[in-house]
Simulated scan of single mutants.
Amino acid sequence: MKKIAMITGATGGIGLSTAKILGKAGYSIILNGIDKAQGKDAEKTLTDLDIPVDIYYFDVTSEEAVNEGFKEIKAKYDHLDVLVNNAGGLGGRSRFEDMDTAFYRKVLALNLDSVFYISRAAIPMLKKSESGSIVNFASNAAWNAGGPGAGIYGTSKAAVVTLTRALAKDLAEYNIRVNAVSPGTIDTDFHKQIKETNIEVFNSWKNNVLLKRLGQPEEVGTVIEFLVSEKASFLTGEIIQVNGGQDFL
């Protein structure tokens, strides 16, 4: 049976790097994103590597959009072996005193609701796999509560940690393992604005990392490859820190 992996928010950054790594490991890839121009580039990148790929454009923060998107996916694919809930983001910064409810809801939807909606829709397909696997994305902020103005981001990622463990308990009887990666500061477009406007601050971030450098997207992707493989067959409910020792300092 052909191995199939779905990755959300995968038109760039860690998501696309993970798609390349899993594709080279023999998976057919289902990409999700919302930026069609970026999606076409991602699709071409994988196709040029002879990796089978389909891309579905829908907003993972919308329950209706996720359910409609999965109708299309299920019409073509009869099962799913791997789900990587990569979609998420900072969503902006706001101190709690000044935070409006719309911003609060937006960040929770981006990082928590999306994982719930996608996982719920994917579980029937994962049950048809011989050994299904879900990998969610936590963050250093789940433990340190984020920097100034990123408190609700940290809160949402802490919720993903608990959701990961809850899903692991819920799905163990179906031989579906659920784990999460918790990246530190990774050099992706997530930090594009600060990199372009204040390179000195960006470069200083490595001083907060024990290994004195920022991580690369591939260094997260290879951990995900391990987590979904048979080499990790006795791992579930775990949160793997990928941060170069950043949480030590």
Rank of each mutant, 00 (worst) to 15 (best):
F96W: 03
S94E: 02
P124Q: 04
E173S: 15
E225G: 06
K212P: 03
F202P: 03
N243Q: 03
L112A: 13
I134E: 03
K195N: 13
A19Q: 09
V181F: 03
A232Y: 00
V53K: 11
D187W: 01
L112G: 06
D189N: 14
V107Q: 05
E130M: 04
T164I: 06
I176F: 07
R93S: 08
L163T: 06
R95D: 12
H79T: 02
E230F: 11
G39Y: 01
K106D: 05
A159Y: 05
K212Q: 14
K3G: 01
A65F: 10
V60E: 09
T101K: 05
L163H: 00
A37D: 15
V242G: 11
V223D: 09
M99G: 05
T101F: 06
I118P: 01
L163E: 10
G151E: 00
Y153C: 05
E43I: 15
K2N: 04
G154F: 07
F248W: 14
S17P: 02
I240D: 08
R93I: 11
I134S: 07
L110K: 12
Q193H: 09
G245R: 11
S129D: 14
K192S: 10
P148T: 10
Q246E: 13
A150L: 09
S94I: 01
Q38M: 13
L49F: 04
V161F: 12
E230N: 14
T222A: 12
I186T: 02
L22D: 12
E72C: 10
S229G: 05
V60M: 04
S233E: 10
A166P: 00
F116A: 02
F248A: 10
L16T: 09
E68A: 12
T222C: 00
F103P: 04
E130Q: 13
D78K: 15
I152S: 03
F137N: 11
L49H: 10
G154E: 00
Q216H: 15
L214C: 03
D98T: 04
S131C: 08
G9Q: 03
V223N: 02
I240Q: 03
E238T: 15
V201P: 10
G33P: 15
